[in-house]
Design a protein around this nucleic acid. Structure first.
Length: 744
DNA sequence: ACACTGTGAGTTTTT
DNA sequence: CTCACAGTGT
């Protein structure tokens, strides 16, 4: 029976508040309750709004208790925001975490499993292993199995195992077929065994175990199916197979599964997110209703047109037509820089200009494809005195000292946690070296017990002391029921960690102490049990940390920008082999993902887009290499949408300019000094190759061939060609085409 | 046990 | 180039 017929209510005032200001499609999406619903929500079309209003609507109109509504997101940040917005709408606090079911997939799994893990053979207080813990366990296993970790890298093995897990392939069913897969297969079996032995789950296990729990325990499944009368899922395009199955199972009873997603914003398929789940929604749920949210409230029509044109080139998608009533706004700017420093200076000067126009730095974001690109930007922004914050770098909970303290806490809570023990048995130094530890590991493996168990009366003094400390802490925790902050202080004291850092007396040690102090303060306010705190800290990322609201510009990767929006967005490195990334250009599916990534970048901007290209870029070890403009450029509407500007440091024979000028000449604004290059040549232009006085015997450096000596010069000025002897070969080079630097 | 040196590898990363 | 780690030397 359709849900709305069960409990008809009159329209109330609060309901009005919830439903007003929604457009017709949003209204339909919010009020539809009859069955499975797929909401295809374009960028900036009010997807979070629909989700939160839907929860509020169900609660207010039908009196559905909030704990009967499950809302799943991918990030803590999204969950947090959703909670805040629902609270605001219904005027009720969702404070009670027991009854709050607006959370991430992993938090959902953790919450259910902490209650029922015994059904799967785990103890109650299992711990969650983060990627660092995973890595150390894999390394330990590979060393146990005598696998050479030079040729087979632990990280690659871990990746393969995770991939298998996401495809629901168990260790037993893992197909071998190659040397690498053989290794993975062996490690996988052992890895899984040891996780269970350590009473630990990795991120993938959380989902797999939740799935197993629901699949194999009718009573538990029924209980949650009945509890969750409504299941809402955010970012459905990013869902993987286990997540999909969890949703399917939980919603099987009431069939009220409401999912929101945007195929064009799937950028995590390399982590197991599978577009098929959203593409097949209507097949999986034949009675499903589909609603398209196509009105964009975020960006200018210029930005939207550019984005739409780009994403049209993808084959794997569902056609939609994102439109807006917003104004046309300013044209996007495409800046062609000489190199990455030039690019960064362009970014910095433009930010400076924006800030001088009283624009808040919080409304400015600088996006790039790879983290390594942030270095030059940071350097130049610092020079320009522009305050910035790099989003996504190190997580607080990933700092060494924090992980050490957490490892102690974990050991106190679960002495089976061998990975935690291995981490801190010699931190601070107790003169327990690799050899000693390896002996313990081997002995434990032999007797099939945990490392701590093989430390006995007969063990070395240092080992006994260590075990004693852990036992003391455990007793203190169990019997005195200490709050976590007090327990951390006790750990600092008893383990000598505090003493160790204090005697070190370096700036680094001081920072570490401060970080631990911060952790103590943070835990003072929480009422979590140790168990809850530990799983929570593993499921936390830096995006969730409460960073004091500062007036700074934001730097981040395209990936981390998803879900955010800014008035002004700078997209750096709009180049072949950067965006699309070199490792994606040959694979059609990955190329489409790169295009989606670019689309995500574009659609972050509300008011104006600044795109930049560096005609030369230094990557890692290599010399500065010529880069071509991204193929995506040729997919954009340039006329009326993009104004192209060229750095004064470039000459008109630059490879990018030559490639572009026929088509785009009218749009290109070359710097006057370059166009009038014969007069008034300034230093920057002098530095550039075509005005160079080349002589025989000069040593020059080519980006492609390295250093060489000029053997012969032919011609003069711009048209000069040079015969150059490089290390292994002699080449005829026309300096106007390739980058050539004078060495001496 | 620890410090030093040489080698190799280096997209993206919601949890 | 720069970081991480394995291997060597004291």
């Amino acid at each position: 029976m359709p849900f709305r017929e069960i409990i008809p209510f009159a329209v109330t005032n609060s309901e009005n508040k919830i439903l007003e200001k929604l457009n017709p499609q949003q209204l339909e999406a919010v009020t539809y309750t009859d069955g499975p619903l797929l909401i295809l929500a374009g960028a900036g079309s009010g997807k979070t709004r629909v989700l939160t209003h839907k929860i509020a609507y169900l609660h207010t109109k039908f009196d559905v208790p909030l704990h009967n509504i499950l809302a799943v997101t991918f990030t803590n940040k999204a969950a947090k925001e959703m909670v805040a917005r629902v609270e605001n709408l219904v005027g009720v606090s969702l404070e009670n975490k027991q009854n709050r079911w607006v959370l991430t997939f992993h938090a959902l799994a953790n919450k259910i499993l902490q209650r029922h893990a015994d059904r799967l053979g785990y103890d109650k207080g299992f711990v969650v292993y983060d990627s660092n813990d995973q890595q150390s366990l894999i390394k330990k296993i590979m060393s146990d199995l005598d696998i050479d970790n030079k040729n087979t890298k632990p990280n690659a093995v871990l990746g393969a195992i995770s991939e298998a897990k996401n495809k629901l392939i168990s260790p037993e069913k893992y197909e071998q077929g190659s040397f690498f897969r053989e290794v993975v297969s062996k490690v996988y079996v052992e890895y899984q065994k040891q996780l269970v032995r350590n009473n630990a789950m990795d991120f993938d296990d959380l989902l797999l175990n939740l799935l197993a729990l629901l699949r194999d325990n009718e009573d538990i499944l029924k209980k949650f199916q009945q509890q969750f009368q409504f299941v809402l899922v955010d970012e459905y395009q990013d869902i993987n197979l286990p997540q999909y199955m969890v949703c399917y199972l939980l919603a099987a009873e009431h069939k009220r599964l409401f999912v929101v997603g945007d195929i064009d914003q799937n950028i995590y398929s390399w982590r197991g997110a599978n577009l098929q789940n959203i593409l097949n929604f209507e097949k999986d749920f034949p009675q499903a209703k589909v609603i398209l949210l196509e009105q964009n409230y975020r960006s200018t029509s210029t930005i939207l047109n550019i984005s739409n044109q780009l994403i049209k080139h993808n084959k794997v998608r569902k056609e939609k037509n994102l439109w807006t009533e917003n104004e046309v706004g300013e044209k996007a700017m495409l800046y062609i820089a000489n190199n990455e420093y030039d690019e960064a200076e362009h970014v910095a000067t433009n930010i400076q200009r924006l800030l001088s126009e009283k624009i808040s730095p919080k409304e400015v974001a600088v996006l790039y494809r790879t983290n390594s690109m942030s270095r030059v930007l940071e350097q130049v922004l610092t020079q320009y005195n522009i305050k910035y914050r790099v989003y996504g770098g190190f997580r607080f909970y990933e700092r060494k000292e924090i992980k050490d303290i957490l490892a102690y806490l974990r050991l106190v809570q679960n002495e089976k946690d061998d990975v935690a023990l291995m981490r801190i048995i010699n931190v601070p130094s107790r003169k327990i070296g690799k050899i000693t530890l390896q002996k313990l590991i081997d002995e434990a493996a032999e007797k099939n017990v945990h490392i701590i168990d093989v430390i006995t009366e007969d063990s070395a003094h240092s080992l006994k002391i260590f075990k004693e400390v852990i036992t003391d802490l455990t007793i203190a925790h169990r019997e005195k029921n200490l709050p976590i902050s007090k327990l951390i202080e006790l750990i600092m004291q008893k383990t000598g960690y505090k003493e160790w850092l204090k005697t070190e007396d370096s700036q680094e040690a001081i920072t570490r102490l401060e970080n631990i102090e911060e952790l103590i303060v943070a835990t003072q306010e929480s009422e979590y049990t140790l168990e809850e705190f530990l799983s929570l800290s593993a499921l936390m990322s830096q995006q969730d940390e409460d960073v004091p609201e500062e007036e700074t510009v934001t730097l981040m990767t395209f990936h981390s920008a998803k879900g955010l929006e800014f008035d002004f967005v700078f997209l750096c490195g709009f180049e072949e082999n950067v965006l699309p990334h070199s490792q994606s250009v040959d694979i059609p599916e990955e190329l489409e993902e790169e295009r989606r990534l670019c689309y995500v970048g574009f659609t972050r901007a509300r008011k104006r887009l600044f795109i930049s290209v560096a005609s030369h870029r230094t990557a890692f070890y290599a010399d500065s290499r010529p880069h071509d403009i991204s193929r995506f450029f040729y997919e954009l509407p340039v006329e009326n949408h993009i104004s192209i500007q060229v750095s004064r440091k470039l000459n008109q024979f630059n490879h990018i300019i030559t490639a572009l000028r026929e088509d785009y000449l009218p749009d290109i604004v070359m710097n006057a000094k370059v166009l009038n290059s014969n007069k008034n040549v300034d230093r920057e232009v002098m530095d550039d190759k075509i005005f160079f006085d080349y002589c025989e015997g000069d040593v020059v450096k080519s980006a492609v061939f390295g250093e060489g000596v000029i053997v012969k010069t032919i011609g003069q000025g711009k048209g000069i060609s040079l015969q150059i002897r490089f290390r292994n070969e002699t080449k005829l080079i026309l300096p106007k085409y390739g980058k050539l630097e004078k060495v001496r």
